[in-house]
Computed example of a mutant assay.
Amino acid sequence: MKNYALLVFLILGITLNSSAMTGSNLIAEEITIITDEYVKIKSSELTPPVIEEILKQYPTSKLGGAFKNDKGEFKLIMVLKSGTRKTVYIDQYGNWINKR
């Protein structure tokens, strides 16, 4: 009788474990789809409104890197006067974007 109870609990545990693993795999798959992909570009590819906004907001900073995605949004790495780096996002029309 004890062997049957042990067998039932073992089968139940294996069944629940396999269904829990498939649920967690689905969640991880959805997260990877959401991310945006930025491609590195030259600073000469920035639009004039973007350049104007950079000069207004960060007059003493240098551009450490520029990236662009399919939506026309730019990811800019600004090197501040203190030497720290700050990542900012801006669209092609010079409007700042808040991303976390």
Rank of each mutant, 00 (worst) to 15 (best):
T22C: 07
M1L: 13
S44A: 02
V88S: 04
N95F: 13
S61E: 00
M21W: 13
K75A: 07
A28K: 14
I33P: 00
Y38F: 11
V50A: 03
F67S: 05
D91A: 01
N25V: 08
E37Q: 15
K68F: 00
L55T: 12
D36C: 00
I90T: 12
K99R: 15
V88H: 04
Y89N: 11
K99E: 10
I33Y: 08
E29D: 14
K40F: 07
M1S: 15
I34H: 08
L12I: 06
I34D: 10
K71V: 02
L26R: 10
N98T: 14
L12T: 10
I41R: 04
F67N: 08
K75C: 02
K42L: 09
D70G: 00
F67K: 06
F9I: 14
M21F: 13
W96V: 10
E37R: 14
P48C: 07
I90A: 09
L80H: 03
G72Q: 01
G72A: 03
F9D: 11
K86D: 04
L76G: 02
I27V: 14
I33A: 10
S61C: 06
I54E: 05
G13V: 00
K71Y: 07
T35R: 11
T32D: 15
A20L: 05
E73C: 01
L7K: 12
L76S: 01
E53V: 12
E37I: 14
S82R: 01
Q57R: 09
T47C: 01
L76F: 04
M78Y: 04
L16V: 05
F67Y: 15
S18G: 00
G72R: 01
V8G: 04
Y58C: 02
L7H: 11
N25L: 10
I77G: 02
V79Q: 09
L6I: 06
I34F: 12
F67D: 08
D36N: 13
T87G: 03
T47R: 02
R85C: 00
K42P: 00
E37Y: 14
Y38E: 08
E29W: 07
I51A: 04
K99N: 12
K2S: 14
N17K: 07
I14H: 03
D36H: 13
V8P: 02
L16I: 06
Y89P: 12
L16A: 12
D91V: 06
D91S: 06
L55V: 10
F67Q: 08
V50N: 02
